[in-house]
Write a protein that binds this DNA or RNA. Structure first.
Length: 206
DNA sequence: TTCGTGATAGAG
DNA sequence: TCTATCACGAAG
């Protein structure tokens, strides 16, 4: 009986990774493992937000977000409370284009029992299959805001041990600029928050 | 489908 | 001060 292992190589992702552009970072983060203290999981869903020309990015409407970009280095986490309930985990990309990657879903790999207690669910698919779920499972809150994930081995990203097939489709949950195909998911993965639309993959001319 | 929840920003 | 908005999730 074969079991799919989703372990990472152990090689930590450095700041250079985030000194490029948000699309490229979001796409390549799929398959990487997020380590957060005693817990972690493989990223199976991520979205890109561009600081310039993207109405859905907080930079478009929030002066405080633009200030965050100015004062922080690539790899800093940007955390905010959504709908008064859910913390959102983003990573600052500061390079050829500035912006953020929103981490939207994980396939749990470590600290699963602890995450189940925090989430008060037993089904592993319910642990981290959404941006608000994963922050609850990993106990990510505003206290982590502005922490840099490229300098601390306890809170970092690790490169994948194997390549993953990535699907690009429209971003979800936003009311503006949703047409950009800037959501990246791991193909057929059961831990993705919402399955990509049929035919929603990257097509030429989009 | 509806609704809770609080940070943020902008108007008055 | 007041109000609109919001990258969500759970319940029904």
């Amino acid at each position: 009986m074969s079991v799919t292992r989703l372990a990472s190589t152990g090689e930590m992702i450095g700041a250079d990774f985030f000194r490029r552009d948000p699309l490229c970072c979001a796409r390549e983060l799929v398959g990487c493992e997020l380590i957060w203290g005693r817990c972690g999981g493989v990223i199976v869903e991520a979205e890109a937000y561009n600081a310039i020309g993207d109405e859905a990015c907080h930079c478009f409407v929030r002066p405080s977000t633009r200030a965050f970009v100015e004062r922080n280095q690539a790899g800093a986490v940007y955390i905010y409370l959504n709908y008064g309930v859910h913390w959102m985990l983003n990573v600052l990309v500061k390079g050829t284009e500035n912006g953020f990657v929103l981490i939207r879903a994980l396939q749990p790999t470590r600290g699963i029992a602890l995450m189940k207690r925090r989430r008060r669910v037993d089904d592993e698919r319910q642990l981290c299959s959404g941006p608000g779920k994963l922050t609850q499972a990993l106990d990510i809150t505003i206290r982590h805001h502005e922490m840099n994930v490229c300098v601390n081995k306890r809170f970092c990203f690790r490169k994948p041990s194997h390549s993953v097939e990535v699907v690009a489709d429209r971003r979800i949950g936003i009311r503006v600029s949703a047409h950009f195909p800037w959501r990246f998911t791991s193909r057929d993965n059961q831990h993705v928050s919402v399955r990509p639309q049929m035919g929603g993959e990257l097509r030429s001319g989009e």
